[in-house]
């Protein structure tokens, strides 16, 4: 921000702007690092599996790329809201957003929207870093956008919940390690769930992240494990549920105003 440039005003816009600026100022950690991580995954997995595995008739590396992009979108969306909130709580500067006339709706929308932006920025970075490793198609791009935004919003909401609930950084780490990581890793990022034994296939159908990644991948190849419309219904349903839950926490002032 230049010294005298103007902001757009109002609680939502300013808080959203501040949240975006916050991660952008440390982009090497918040954008470059996750892009590099995804690139390493791609290099290792494609080296080991390319030529051995095909999924839906797509070469493995090409199949893997959308999975890695979506995983990065999701993890970074979660990371953005949760780490911002816990930092503000631990350092106490959360009062700066609690003192002004910002409604709980605006509060929620700003944190989630900034999370989506971070997810999309990192996801785009991963796509640019990886797409020359395999011939990629973009058959139905609208699905790509829809699932990226909705998935980012869901994980952004989860991040708000985790950031508000956790009192310490290790509680947040537990939330991340025992919930977010297993859900994303066991969702078909690295494989098609059709290649799994029946029990694991059934279990995967209970994992909402599976639908986010499957629907997202459908946008690239026009082929997926589940119908994109089913995925849309599941993901949309999850978003509505989570948003309602989070808004209710915020409305009650849970842990923020007690």
């Amino acid at each position: 921000m230049s010294e005298r440039s103007d902001l757009r005003y109002g609680g939502f816009t300013t808080l959203f702007y501040k949240e975006v600026l916050r991660f952008w100022k440390v982009a090497s950690q918040t954008v470059a690092a996750p892009v590099l991580t995804a690139l390493l995954y791609l290099l290792i997995f494609s080296h080991v599996l390319e030529g051995h595995v095909q999924v839906h008739g797509v070469a493995y590396t090409a199949f893997l790329i959308p999975g890695l992009v979506m995983m990065s979108v999701l993890q970074n969306a979660f990371s953005n809201s949760s780490s911002s909130l816990i930092q503000s709580k631990v350092t106490g500067n959360i009062v700066f957003v609690l003192l002004p006339p910002i409604s709980y709706m605006e509060f929620f929308a700003a944190y989630v929207a900034a999370s989506v932006v971070r997810g999309l920025v990192v996801g785009t970075g991963v796509l640019f870093a990886t797409f020359w490793f395999a011939p990629l198609t973009f058959v139905e791009p609208i699905w790509i956008l829809v699932f990226a935004v909705m998935g980012g919003a869901i994980l952004g909401s989860l991040g708000v919940i985790a950031g508000i609930w956790a009192d310490k950084f290790d509680q947040l780490a537990a939330f991340q390690n025992f919930l977010i990581m297993p859900l994303t890793f066991l969702s078909g990022v690295f494989y098609s769930i059709n290649s799994l034994p029946p029990f694991w296939q059934k279990l995967s159908h209970w994992n909402p992240v599976f639908y986010m990644i499957d629907g997202f991948r459908h946008g690239f190849f026009g082929i997926s494990d589940a119908s994109p419309w089913l995925s849309l219904a599941v993901v949309g349903g999850c978003l509505v549920l989570l948003a309602t839950f989070t808004l209710n926490l915020l409305k009650r002032g849970y842990k923020l105003r007690n």
Binding site: D6, L7, R8, Y9, G11, T13, K18, F96, P100, P101
Partner: peptide, 9 residues
């Protein structure tokens, strides 16, 4: 930023 929270541009 604090001004913006109060809607002041």
């Amino acid at each position: 930023i604090q001004s913006g929270y109060f809607g002041i541009g």
